[in-house]
């Protein structure tokens, strides 16, 4: 963005220079975010629509877990009857999707990179009007903790899937896929536990932490993890996409799952 007239109007009375004076590569971070998040959303939507190659015994893709409809290849919980004839992924994807959409870290990431409010620090907002999170629809971000509850439920199923991944048709065993699903569950757990709402609910909301020693311990631990919430957000995003790709390729017969035992 070059210095321009419309910016001048934005700083009435400040009388200093206008325009964008940063000379470093401030655009790299938003660009990488657009590529990373955009790429994930495109892939997850595509994978959700496929409605195939999401299960290969004993591996269930995390995009389809828990599998709730009876049209599923591997039903986790038969909640939805035959009438549901779309991809079972859509019955669950909205939960992790909503959890990440309302996550404090991802909000920062997409407000900056997609919404350009602001694109980077000391780089002017692209739009002249601004209402932050005071009005609909962004006021709905306050729902985040409810998505945290729901996502925790999904996480229980993903751990279950990781354990099930030891149960091959020919008995107990372990393959690369088992490891992939296990790592996926660990990464997603780190992401969930380090959540700001989780931190608040576990202890942050108290003023006198010394009177609640267990909650103080939980809060202290979560606070440490919370410092790396952005890292867990990204690595778990890649992890979950990789787990789906892995199961998909094995199910399609493109690659062969290596059995350790």
């Amino acid at each position: 963005m070059s210095p321009n007239g419309s910016l001048e109007a934005r700083y009435p009375g400040t009388a200093g220079p206008t325009g964008m004076l940063r000379r470093d590569a401030w655009w790299v971070e938003p660009l990488l975010t657009v590529l990373g998040l955009g790429g994930f959303v495109v892939y997850a939507t595509w994978a959700g629509f496929q409605n195939a190659f999401y299960f290969v015994d004993p591996y269930l893709s995390p995009f389809y877990s828990p599998c709730l409809s009876s049209n599923c290849e591997h039903v986790s919980l038969p909640l939805i009857g035959r009438w549901w004839n779309l991809s079972p992924a859509f019955l669950v994807l909205w939960i992790p999707g909503g959890f990440r959409l309302t996550c404090y870290y991802y909000r920062k990431a997409y407000y900056r990179s997609f919404w350009w409010a602001p694109p980077a620090c000391a780089v002017p907002d692209v739009r002249t009007g601004y209402s932050g999170e005071t009005a609909f629809p962004l006021i709905l971000q306050n729902i985040h903790r409810y998505f945290f509850y729901l996502a925790t439920g999904v996480l229980v199923f993903l751990w279950w899937d990781a354990l099930e991944a030891f149960r091959f048709p020919d008995g107990f065993g372990m393959g690369v896929g088992t490891l992939v699903l296990l790592v996926n569950a660990v990464l997603l757990s780190l992401y969930s536990v380090s959540c700001h709402s989780c931190r608040h609910l576990c202890g942050g909301r108290l003023d006198v932490l010394s009177k609640a020693p267990t909650r103080y311990k939980a809060w202290s631990l979560i606070s440490k993890l919370n410092e790396h919430h952005m890292f867990y957000a990204w690595i778990s995003l890649f992890g979950v996409a990789f787990a789906d790709v892995y199961v998909r390729l094995v199910a399609m017969g493109v690659i062969r799952d290596i059995r350790f035992f």
Partner: peptide, 21 residues
């Protein structure tokens, strides 16, 4: 609620206060 937690305050704080988090 006008703050959209984009963390520029944290980025510039010379005392490294985790203002946003």
């Amino acid at each position: 609620e006008l703050c959209n937690i984009t963390k520029c305050c944290t980025e510039v704080c010379p005392e490294s206060i985790h203002i946003t988090d």
